[in-house]
Amino acid sequence: MQVRTRHTPAFGVARVILGPGEAVQARGESMFASSFGLTEVAGGRKSPSVFTAPKEGGWLDLAPAGAGDVYPLEFDGRTGWCVARQAVLARPASVRADSWPGLQAMFGAEHGFLEHYSGTGPLVLACAGPVDQFQLAAGELISVRPGHLLAYPDSVQCRLRALDPSGQQSIRTGEGLMIDFAGPGTLLVQARKSR
């Protein structure tokens, strides 16, 4: 699977190029064009569809529901990534959602505003705005509001804290919270707050 982007950063489109018989999971409503012969097996109301290329291969064009960028995040099989919930536009079977002890320590038994992915290949992310990459040096600290966080590798140290301990907070949405990160590592943030 290969990913090519266009119309970025305001109205990003991802062209996913599939080899013969190769498949990709994506939100069904995000696909607006494809090569002839591509098949779709629709998921349930909240499940992604599976698009499969015919024997000669094919492509499909995907776009997020709203304005913003698309960002292909390449997985190398060595490092997993924590990704903003609802940010995944498309993924091959070789990139899987999994449970990770770091998120369980952060959120407890609740489903928080992040998901963990690992494997190999490109994970296509839908972003609310242009993507900024912060390269943190060893010991460098940065704080990010959860609504702007897109992804970070699980090797980066982080801490979740309340902006105002007496104010309203939500682990599910990130409201009233801040995440502190310590380098070394890479942070991906979106310039506009996720919807």
Rank of each mutant, 00 (worst) to 15 (best):
G112Q: 07
A137L: 05
Y152L: 01
R96L: 13
L136K: 09
P122W: 04
D154W: 13
G129F: 08
Y117Q: 09
D154I: 08
L163F: 08
V95M: 01
F107G: 03
D98R: 12
P101I: 05
P122D: 04
T120C: 03
V131T: 02
A90K: 00
A105M: 14
D132S: 11
S143R: 13
A128C: 12
A105E: 14
F113Q: 05
S143I: 08
L125E: 06
I142D: 01
A138Y: 03
H148P: 05
S118I: 07
H148Q: 02
G139L: 05
H116G: 06
P101W: 15
Q157P: 04
P92D: 01
R91K: 14
A93P: 06
L125M: 08
A93T: 06
S166Y: 13
A138K: 11
Q104T: 13
L149N: 02
L123S: 03
P101N: 12
Y152M: 03
Q135G: 01
A162R: 15
V95D: 03
Q168I: 06
S166F: 15
E140D: 08
A137H: 07
G121C: 12
E140M: 00
C127I: 08
Y117W: 15
S94W: 08
L149T: 03
P146I: 02
A93L: 09
S99D: 15
